[in-house]
Simulated assay, not measured.
Amino acid sequence: MAWIVLILSGVLEAVWATALGASDGFKRKLPTLIFIVSMAVSMAGLAYAMTDLATGTSYAVWVGIGAVLTAVLAVVRKQERLSLSRAALLAALIGCVVGLKAVS
């Protein structure tokens, strides 16, 4: 159960990071609200996962999922370009996250 919560919390990290960028310095209400709620739930999920999983592994997986999904969302929203090197590095990051799960 802790792994499922951790993965969902990582997804929410991408949501709050994207909402933070869209909030325009907290000037836009809806993205700011999405940021606040998703960040609180994401942090609570991380804290819950850390009760069963190692802190370093939990944090690395949470950040890795959030970073990859945030980058993918930026590409999908056409805010960033996806180069071959960027895609390879994101794939490597995904491999590292999966590797941490495998050795845990």
Score class of each variant (00 low, 15 high):
7 I>G: 04
82 L>D: 09
88 A>R: 12
40 A>V: 13
39 M>L: 13
82 L>H: 08
15 V>C: 03
52 D>V: 08
3 W>H: 07
11 V>M: 02
55 T>S: 12
101 K>L: 10
10 G>H: 01
12 L>K: 02
3 W>A: 07
96 C>K: 12
51 T>N: 11
22 A>I: 00
97 V>R: 01
74 A>H: 00
42 S>V: 05
28 R>L: 15
57 T>E: 12
1 M>G: 13
3 W>Y: 13
78 K>C: 08
21 G>E: 05
69 L>K: 03
34 I>A: 02
66 G>S: 02
5 V>H: 03
33 L>R: 07
1 M>N: 08
87 A>R: 04
24 D>R: 10
27 K>A: 13
13 E>T: 05
86 R>T: 14
103 V>S: 13
25 G>Q: 02
103 V>Y: 00
82 L>G: 10
58 S>I: 11
24 D>C: 00
36 I>A: 04
90 L>D: 05
59 Y>K: 02
10 G>E: 05
29 K>R: 15
70 T>F: 01
29 K>D: 14
83 S>H: 13
74 A>V: 05
49 A>R: 03
28 R>C: 03
39 M>R: 04
95 G>N: 11
68 V>R: 00
74 A>Y: 01
34 I>V: 15
102 A>P: 03
103 V>M: 08
93 L>P: 15
80 E>G: 10
14 A>Q: 01
45 G>D: 01
77 R>Q: 14
34 I>F: 08
43 M>C: 10
42 S>G: 11
99 G>L: 13
57 T>A: 08
70 T>W: 03
56 G>P: 15
97 V>N: 06
98 V>I: 15
80 E>Y: 01
95 G>H: 07
21 G>Q: 01
34 I>R: 00
13 E>M: 07
55 T>E: 08
94 I>Y: 08
77 R>Y: 07
85 S>N: 12
86 R>H: 13
69 L>A: 11
85 S>A: 15
96 C>P: 10
66 G>P: 01
30 L>N: 14
41 V>F: 09
82 L>P: 10
59 Y>Q: 05
68 V>W: 01
61 V>T: 09
9 S>P: 03
92 A>P: 15
89 L>D: 09
102 A>N: 11
37 V>L: 12
68 V>Q: 02
17 A>Q: 06
33 L>A: 14
19 A>K: 03
37 V>Y: 06
101 K>A: 12
67 A>G: 13
82 L>S: 12
23 S>D: 01
27 K>Q: 11
17 A>N: 08
7 I>P: 02
55 T>W: 09
25 G>V: 03
18 T>E: 06
81 R>T: 14
18 T>C: 12
39 M>Y: 04
53 L>I: 13
69 L>F: 12
13 E>D: 11
41 V>K: 10
33 L>C: 09
91 A>P: 15
72 V>Q: 01
59 Y>L: 09
81 R>H: 13
49 A>P: 09
87 A>I: 06
84 L>D: 04
63 V>H: 06
89 L>Q: 08
98 V>H: 00
35 F>H: 04
48 Y>E: 06
99 G>H: 06
94 I>L: 15
57 T>L: 12
86 R>K: 14
30 L>I: 14
19 A>F: 09
34 I>G: 07
75 V>Q: 04
75 V>K: 00
74 A>R: 00
53 L>N: 04
56 G>H: 05
42 S>D: 01
20 L>E: 08
47 A>K: 05
22 A>P: 07
